[in-house]
């Protein structure tokens, strides 16, 4: 067995390809001619200041908005061109942890996590319950299935959102500002989970964040977007960028306070 992957592709195949993407709102262009690849099993962090198009790029990759120009290929499928049935199948292969956790307040945590399973026939209630407990166990929330989101702390809700995003064993997990609003301890716990799930399940992860410390700790690769450039201004592993990036926008954002490359 080459790996516990639900495809015949190899580890260096891209799972997402963004080609010549242009996107914006009305007359305003936010991203122009953006090209990128997300490789299988990597943790890719997309960073940049406010308004640089990070969230827009994320929404393009999960098919919530369509590009003005260019293509987004997920698993080889152009998600703007496929029919609704195919798009839904593609979406079942991805999980998203939203910035606000997006747990439904009228449902218990267990019901929230079980919700994606309700789209499948032929699964017994006992299996659903065990899967929910298994996923809650993976995010250290065992025992909280009958609690409502309003009764949980911000960090617990984030982890609950992660359990729901993971319930269908997605190949790709997207995180929109995962540590926003979390204290350092909860943030560190979430980081540990992200790394553990990536290492244990081999899940490809795309993280959109402006929390530089989190990004530098978890990323295999970083893409930095810039509002003025309307696209990517730097790409590489944290070490590569630390050692080679000379662009002041990149150094100011990612390595503020550190000596410049070649500096004394």
């Amino acid at each position: 067995m080459k790996g516990n992957r639900d495809t015949a592709q190899g580890p260096d195949d891209p799972v997402i390809v963004v080609e010549s993407l242009t996107a914006g709102f009305g007359e305003t262009t936010i991203l122009e001619n953006v090209n990128l690849k997300v490789l299988r099993g990597e943790i890719l962090c997309i960073v940049g200041g406010s308004g640089c198009g990070k969230s827009t790029l994320l929404k393009q990759m999960i098919g919530l908005i369509r590009p003005d120009n260019g293509r987004v290929l997920v698993g080889g499928d152009d998600i703007a061109a496929v029919d609704d049935e195919r798009l839904n199948r593609i979406r079942r292969g991805i999980g998203v942890l939203f910035q606000s956790d997006a747990l439904f307040g009228s449902m218990t945590l267990g019901e929230n996590v079980a919700l994606p399973l309700s789209g499948f026939k032929g699964i017994s209630a006992e299996t659903v319950q065990l899967i929910v407990r298994m996923k809650l166990g993976m995010v250290n929330l065992v025992g909280y299935e009958n609690h409502y989101p309003a009764e949980l702390s911000g960090g617990m809700r984030k982890r609950g959102g992660l359990a729901r995003a993971m319930v269908l064993d997605p190949q790709i997990l997207f995180f929109d500002e995962p540590s926003a609003g979390l204290d350092p301890i909860n943030s560190a716990e979430l980081e540990t989970l992200i790394r553990g799930i990536n290492a244990g399940l081999g899940t490809t992860m795309v993280i959109v964040s402006h929390q530089v410390d989190l990004v530098l700790r978890v990323a295999h690769r970083i893409l930095m977007l810039d509002r003025g450039a309307k696209g990517i201004v730097a790409a590489g592993s944290p070490e590569e960028l630390r050692n080679t990036a000379t662009d002041p926008r990149v150094r100011n954002f990612l390595f503020r306070g550190e000596a410049a490359v070649g500096g004394r």
């Binding site: 790996g3 516990n4 267990g110 809650l136 166990g137 993976m138 025992g143 009958n146 609690h147 290492a199």
Partner: peptide, 26 residues
């Protein structure tokens, strides 16, 4: 057992699968 499946097993809290919820279902 393939290594990948072994890693997934390592993530599962087996005791948690049967532990009673902190609050009973309403």
């Amino acid at each position: 057992v393939p290594e990948e499946i072994r890693r997934v097993m390592g993530l599962i809290d087996r005791e948690g699968l049967t532990r009673s919820p902190l609050r009973a279902e309403g």
